[in-house]
Simulated assay, not measured.
Amino acid sequence: MRKKIVAGNWKMNMTKEEGQALISEVVNMAKDEVNSQVVMVLCPPFPHLGYAKKMFQSQANIFLGAQNCHEKTSGAYTGEVSASILKSFDVDYVILGHSERREYFQESDELLKLKVDQALANQLTPIFCCGESLAQRQAGSGFIEFVCGQITQSLFHLSSEQFAKVVIAYEPIWAIGTGLTATSAQAQEMHAALRKHIASQHGQKLADEISILYGGSAKPSNTPELFACPDVDGGLIGGASLKSRDFIDIAKSFKW
């Protein structure tokens, strides 16, 4: 069975005190309420990484994630953080290719390919983001091919053994922070297409084992329907991950 994953992307939010309070609440709620088979990943800003893991290391199904890493091993890159540094802080996952990184920092598919390689070389699990813009969606055709192309350009150089260690996150850019959400039918269509595309490169067995998450204004009111789709294996959660009650309720949205 594919891993069911709920990853919280805090983005550039939370002071140290706010972050500590949020983690404490999530850990306490998770112990009492969340099925132990649900993998929860908390992805705070870099400064939180030093203390975060210590706060939930006794909770076996909560993992630590980072929001980005640099494409080089080390060097004179002021303000950047390498995959090896993240690993030294016991980070487990790293988000790569988020639409905000692609848009605001001009991250290309080729650059993300190098970042994926760095993550895997340092035993980090990449949460690789892909998705289409509102204009591409409204054009009515070609948006599935575009998103599959992002997978091809950044991930299809990997061996099957390497690819099996990647988590995919489909995030329709038009639904991030806008309050808009893809319908369950739209999400399922894209997730199924991505799984079919992966199968074309690595075979159906591996494609069936890859977790593909949905990201885009996901919240407790819509995740039960989204997570019930056969090819949706969880969510990459933005705003709702900053509220412990919402994040835990999302983690409880799976039908077992």
Results as ranks from 00 to 15, higher is better:
A76Y: 03
S160R: 11
A199R: 07
Q20R: 15
G234D: 10
T178G: 07
I62Q: 00
L64E: 05
F56D: 03
F163V: 05
K4H: 13
N13V: 01
I198T: 05
A21Y: 04
S217I: 09
I173H: 03
H191V: 01
K11Y: 01
V41S: 13
L96H: 11
T78Y: 11
L22K: 11
P45W: 00
N122W: 08
G19H: 06
K54R: 10
K72Y: 12
K113W: 00
S88M: 10
L134Q: 15
K3Q: 14
T152Y: 06
S241T: 09
K31Y: 14
L42Y: 02
G8T: 04
L158V: 13
S133L: 02
G50M: 13
E18S: 13
G239C: 10
A76R: 04
V27P: 10
Q150L: 09
A21T: 12
G97L: 10
T152H: 13
L206I: 12
C129G: 08
D231W: 05
A207G: 06
A66M: 09
D109M: 04
A218C: 14
K16S: 05
G75T: 04
D90Q: 14
F46G: 00
V27F: 12
P172G: 11
L155W: 10
M1P: 10
A30G: 09
A175G: 06
E33C: 06
A228G: 04
H70N: 14
L64V: 08
F89T: 00
V38D: 05
A83V: 08
C130D: 00
A187I: 04
Q153E: 15
A251H: 09
E209Y: 00
Q67C: 05
Q37P: 00
D208S: 14
E17K: 12
P172H: 08
A228K: 13
G65C: 11
A119T: 07
P47T: 04
S154L: 12
E107P: 07
S241Y: 08
I85S: 12
L155K: 08
M190T: 05
S133F: 00
R102D: 08
M29L: 15
V147F: 02
A175P: 04
I250Q: 08
T125W: 02
A164C: 11
A193R: 06
V27N: 13
D32T: 12
E17Q: 14
M40S: 03
A228E: 08
D109Q: 08
A192T: 13
S217M: 04
I151G: 02
L226Y: 05
K87D: 06
G235A: 15
S133R: 06
T223R: 01
F146I: 02
V91W: 09
K4I: 00
R2N: 12
R245C: 01
L111T: 12
L213I: 10
R2W: 01
